[in-house]
Write a protein that binds this DNA or RNA. Structure first.
Lengths: 122, 122
DNA sequence: ACGATTGTTCAATGGAAATTGAACAAAAGG
DNA sequence: CCTTTTGTTCAATTTCCATTGAACAATCGT
């Protein structure tokens, strides 16, 4: 485990990678839930998504989200807090993230979009 | 060759399929060029993209774009004219297509986005 | 120091996607 | 008709992606 996971710079974020990342139902659901919690700070723990899939599979999706530049990870004890890279994404591709999230919200039922409970913060 | 290729209805268009479709560089370039030609009617022939890849590979990508609901195909003689399904896409996922196209335009250089010449219309 | 918790890394597997070339289909034009 | 043009379909290959379980790493609590 590297002490600090790698995050691409804002300029390194690439559109096809980002779209591919968002095209996976599990990753889209993660982004959707992160967006939903933005009013309350926007941070969720990795463990908050344990109902979505197995842990190792989730770790794989978290890494893809991070390396695509969609989320940032903050280490707190043994836990990891994730949040959307709002500023970077809005600066890089204005309106794109909002349009995707709004589209996902619109189809939440059809997409069988899961929701997760935020664990009590530290 | 079926006389009329299948197009999904507006309601059948699905977000993950659409995003996956747009995440491929060749398909994104096709959509980008179709968008660029919207002021002039928005139709381009399949053959206008022949510089992008081999014909059979393009036929594969055209089918994916069509089946994702991104484009519609009109048969004229031996040629096929494609155009974006603007109304359906804007109705289904407002702002999404525009945000993607604007993002692609912004990164056109980095994406080595090819441009195609519209052949003289009939 | 020890065990529990949290999450990652690794290796292996199954399956879907992209690419290629050859063969085919439909219409246009001489 | 016969040839050319346009584009698809098919089969085969290669590559990449998602998923799984076992092993590992880092921290916390006691």
């Amino acid at each position: 485990m590297s002490r600090t996971p790698h995050h691409p710079t804002r300029a390194e974020i690439e559109l096809p990678v980002l779209l591919d990342c968002l095209s996976d139902p599990i990753r889209l659901a993660i982004v959707y839930n992160l967006a939903k919690h933005e009013p309350e700070g926007g941070e969720l723990r990795c463990g908050d998504f344990n109902a979505f899939s197995g842990k190792s599979n989730l770790a794989y999706h978290f890494a893809r989200l991070r390396e695509a530049g969609l989320v940032q990870t903050r280490l707190v004890g043994t836990a990891r807090y994730m949040s959307l890279r709002r500023e970077d994404l809005d600066a890089r591709f204005p309106g794109l993230l909002d349009a995707v999230i709004a589209s996902a919200a619109r189809d939440a039922d059809r997409l069988q979009m899961r929701e997760c409970e935020a664990a009590p913060s530290d």
